[in-house]
Design a binder for these strands. Structure first.
Lengths: 141, 141
DNA sequence: TTTGATATTGATATTCATTATCATTTGTTA
DNA sequence: TAACAAATGATAATGAATATCAATATCAAA
């Protein structure tokens, strides 16, 4: 819930331990800027250390979310994807319904309007997700 | 995928059959304007006809989506909710993270900006979902 | 260092929503 | 009404997310 800058800082704040599994998973995840499913990250991390278990990958991703270093995205099909978050940054997504391509976009005007809408309904805004579904130039019929 | 005005019309267009189960489920669903999970609708429809099965409720909701008379919403927790759609109308949602209250809102400016964003990225927009998470006036700490 | 309390790991089991299967029943058309 | 195709409902299968638990690793304090 807090937002320290590093995963190590988060572990310390929470009294959690630093392990080589966590280090491997986190550094690989943060280095690649991809929208990982647990399974995808698990498979790729296997190349670094084949002994790392699926559950550990899943748990570590949850820790990253709690640390404010990742967010969960559910675009369609009920599969959760995790993406890394840069300090103070927010973006939304365009998703191609055919090829699955994911494009990130930022739009301050939309953000401002969302804040306004929340205010009008007497809501304290905590988070917001905006997903546009469509067809990319390559997949258009 | 097409958008006829009635469920009966949809069934005819698709060569599907009209059954009393479908009638019961659809008329109950459309009459209540709620964000139903399959389980919730199943339980409530049991009061009308206890013989209706879970699978039929699920299948009928999927038909309603295909008919353009309902949409699926996934707010959090991986549970799919279905809500009825009025002709030519679109709205987005404000969700309270504490009590789960769901408020619908419409904002043309946001819609217009979304269309613009899609165009800028050379996307043909098919659908869009915007969810604001926060705390309603009653749940604010 | 070594110890000991405590957290973590990894294999596996469990949960739960969604979807598929299939024998039986029902609706529709000729 | 008969014949065929589709729908139903019970149940099984699927698959992602989470829980369990014995074995192991981490880290602060002695």
């Amino acid at each position: 819930m807090s937002s320290p800058k590093t995963f190590q800082g988060y572990l310390q704040d929470k009294g959690l331990k630093s392990t080589h599994q966590r280090d491997d998973i986190v550094s690989y995840f943060l280095q690649k800027s991809k929208h990982f499913t647990v399974k995808e990250l698990y498979r790729e991390v296997q190349n670094i250390d084949p002994k790392i278990g699926y559950a550990t990958v899943h748990r570590t991703l949850k820790l990253l979310v709690d640390a404010g270093l990742a967010t969960e995205c559910r675009f369609s099909g009920g599969i959760t994807r995790f993406e890394s978050v840069k300090e103070g940054e927010h973006h939304d997504h365009l998703v191609c319904l055919k090829c699955g391509k994911i494009i990130e976009f930022e739009n301050d005007k939309i953000e401002q309007l969302q804040i306004k809408v929340a205010k009008e309904h007497n809501f304290t805004l905590a988070d917001h997700k905006c997903v546009l579904y469509g067809y990319c130039s390559g997949c258009r019929e």
